[in-house]
Design a binder for these strands. Structure first.
Lengths: 205, 205
DNA sequence: CAAAAGATAAACCGTTCAGTTCAGTTTCGG
DNA sequence: CCGAAACTGAACTGAACGGTTTATCTTTTG
């Protein structure tokens, strides 16, 4: 069936192991995670893990790949970009902000940043199934609105990146550095509106 | 002299130790750093380190505090914000972008994000002597320009945060996730100009 | 049912590493 | 120049952890 050179052999409890590994890696990061704990959480023996996967690093890669796919799928499913700019941008900003304020978004970002020096592939994979997806979708939408003369944009890629970045203002860094971990709806709303307003002030007609 | 409950005893080679520890922690992060290596790099014996500091965690905190002070001092020294908005913002954006693209800025951010869950104090300390300093200086400048009627800003704190965030567009995330580690002057310039233009489109008169 | 394949628990190995100990050397104020 | 305090280096301890092995049990399937 699957005679990869990567040497990942599947088995009855493969998914069960991955799910346990996902939980533990997400909670503790790569170094912090302990294989015995993964085995415990996954309710799978350590020997089984090592019969599926040659080492901890590859297990981590496997989890990360799966996670990236999930993330990308979810992102695509939820992006329904059509209609007037202000409403659509507001909607898009809401999604993005809620995502990176979520436990999952936070942990994903933390791991990507922390481990990308040790595992460059990980960083790239996360980037390509997170920011890239958002940017691509946004770029496509902007191109559409430009041809409708609703927007005027010289550098469309930069504009998309700016919008994404505007959505982080005041929130993202504070959260990632543990200065503040909870935000009220009002605080979030302020940032979302601010992002849309600033973006449209520059690129709206 | 110094009978802190934190139990940091100074001595002849205290600074020498801190300098070595700084190098190693910056290069390898908290977990990755090895006390024997710190001793080697600092040219100080491990026993001396443990006579100054009760454990690795406190040593890390000490280094981080020092680093934050340095960073803050440097930031304040270099912020000479006066004059017309477009020029000053361009200058400020240049400084910020070069900072977080620098080796030092990159490592600092990585450590702050990676360790702030384990050591909340670290994250806050970094935040208060990095982003906060920039935001405060920027806020003061904006307030000045608002009273000159050169800018119109409803939410001045948000505006400052937006400007900072705009400076990261297209660069920061790519860099932190290892997608791209070097940028040409042209690429950097594009982002800086974009940040200033977008900011002024929204808040300029 | 019987054999093969898969899974398990637990002990085990080798290494890494924070932190300790101590006998000996260097430094420096008085 | 003496003696106390600071520093050294090297060996040691104990715990954590990645990975292996083995003997045994369970599930699948022909």
């Amino acid at each position: 069936m699957n005679a990869q050179p990567g040497a990942i052999k599947k088995g009855r409890k493969f998914d069960q192991m991955l799910e346990g590994a996902r939980k533990v890696f997400m909670a503790d990061g790569f170094e912090g995670a302990n294989v015995d704990e993964i085995a415990r959480v996954a309710k799978v023996s350590k020997a089984t893990i090592y019969s599926y996967v040659p080492d901890k690093r590859l297990l981590f890669m496997e989890v990360a790949k799966l996670e990236c796919r999930r993330q990308a799928d979810a992102a695509i499913a939820r992006m329904q970009l059509a209609g007037p700019a202000s409403a659509v941008l507001f909607e898009a900003a809401s999604h993005m902000v809620r995502f990176f304020l979520s436990d999952f978004g936070r942990q994903t970002y933390r791991i990507a940043v922390a481990e990308s020096e040790r595992f460059p592939e990980i960083g790239r994979a996360f980037y390509n199934s997170g920011p890239t997806i958002a940017r691509t979708a946004l770029t496509a939408y902007l191109a559409d609105r430009i041809s409708n003369n609703e927007l005027v944009v010289d550098d469309i890629e930069l504009a998309a990146d700016q919008f994404i970045e505007l959505c982080k203002a005041s929130l993202h860094t504070k959260m990632m550095m543990g200065v503040k971990t909870e935000f009220t709806d009002a605080e979030v709303d302020r940032v979302i509106r601010g992002a849309v307003d600033t973006f449209l002030a520059r690129y709206g007609t």
